[in-house]
Amino acid sequence: EEERTFTNEEEARKAKKEAEKRGLRVTVTKDGTTWRVRIG
């Protein structure tokens, strides 16, 4: 499991799409101005 943080919503969405392409489970949460993308 890996967690990545982004300040840019577009980049967070891109990371989510890429992980889904690899067949991984992805959770995206917004924490104030930060987007957290949890993969795995």
Rank of each mutant, 00 (worst) to 15 (best):
E1M: 14
E1A: 12
E1I: 15
E1H: 11
E1L: 13
E1S: 10
E2A: 09
E2R: 10
E2T: 13
E2Y: 15
E2N: 09
E2Q: 10
E2L: 13
E3S: 07
E3L: 10
E3V: 13
E3N: 06
E3D: 08
E3Q: 06
E3T: 10
E3F: 09
R4I: 14
R4H: 13
R4V: 10
R4L: 15
R4Y: 15
R4T: 08
T5P: 02
T5F: 13
T5M: 11
T5Q: 07
T5H: 09
T5V: 14
T5I: 14
T5K: 05
T5G: 03
T5D: 05
F6R: 00
F6H: 01
F6T: 02
F6A: 01
F6M: 02
F6W: 02
F6K: 00
T7C: 13
T7D: 13
T7P: 09
T7L: 09
T7Y: 11
T7M: 10
T7I: 07
T7A: 10
T7Q: 10
T7W: 09
N8F: 05
N8Y: 04
N8S: 13
N8D: 09
N8P: 00
N8T: 14
N8A: 04
E9V: 07
E9G: 06
E9S: 05
E9R: 08
E9P: 06
E10T: 09
E10R: 11
E10P: 05
E10C: 08
E10V: 09
E10A: 12
E10G: 09
E11M: 06
E11K: 04
E11C: 08
E11G: 05
E11H: 05
E11P: 01
E11A: 09
A12C: 07
A12Q: 01
A12H: 01
A12K: 00
R13Q: 14
R13A: 11
R13V: 13
R13K: 11
R13N: 14
R13E: 13
R13Y: 15
K14L: 12
A15E: 04
A15D: 02
A15M: 08
A15N: 03
A15V: 08
A15F: 15
K16H: 07
K16Q: 15
K16D: 00
K16C: 14
K16M: 15
K16A: 15
K16E: 13
K16V: 15
K17N: 12
K17H: 14
K17V: 13
K17Y: 14
K17I: 14
K17F: 14
K17P: 01
E18F: 06
E18H: 06
E18Y: 06
E18L: 07
E18P: 00
E18K: 04
A19D: 02
A19H: 05
A19Y: 13
A19L: 14
A19F: 11
A19M: 12
E20P: 01
E20R: 04
E20Q: 08
E20V: 06
E20Y: 04
K21I: 10
K21H: 09
K21S: 13
K21F: 09
K21R: 12
K21N: 12
R22Y: 07
R22T: 05
R22E: 06
R22S: 07
R22M: 13
R22G: 05
G23E: 01
G23H: 04
G23K: 02
G23M: 02
G23A: 02
G23P: 00
G23Y: 03
L24G: 02
L24M: 08
L24I: 05
L24Q: 07
L24V: 05
R25I: 12
R25T: 11
R25N: 09
R25L: 11
R25S: 11
R25G: 04
R25A: 09
R25F: 11
R25Q: 11
V26N: 00
V26Q: 00
V26F: 02
T27H: 07
T27R: 06
T27G: 02
T27P: 00
T27Q: 07
T27F: 08
T27A: 04
V28H: 00
V28E: 00
V28W: 04
V28T: 03
T29S: 08
T29W: 14
T29M: 09
T29E: 09
T29K: 05
K30A: 07
K30D: 05
K30S: 13
K30M: 08
K30V: 10
K30G: 06
D31R: 05
D31E: 12
D31L: 08
D31F: 07
D31W: 06
D31H: 09
D31K: 05
G32F: 02
G32D: 06
G32P: 01
G32T: 03
G32R: 02
G32E: 05
G32Q: 03
G32S: 03
T33P: 13
T33W: 06
T33I: 10
T33H: 12
T33S: 12
T33M: 11
T34W: 09
T34K: 09
T34Q: 10
T34G: 08
T34V: 15
T34Y: 12
W35Y: 06
W35G: 01
W35P: 01
W35R: 01
R36G: 02
R36E: 04
R36K: 12
R36L: 13
R36W: 08
R36H: 10
V37F: 03
V37W: 01
V37C: 06
V37Q: 00
V37G: 00
V37A: 01
R38A: 10
R38H: 13
R38E: 09
R38W: 12
R38T: 14
R38Q: 10
I39N: 01
I39F: 08
I39Y: 08
I39K: 01
G40V: 15
G40K: 11
G40R: 10
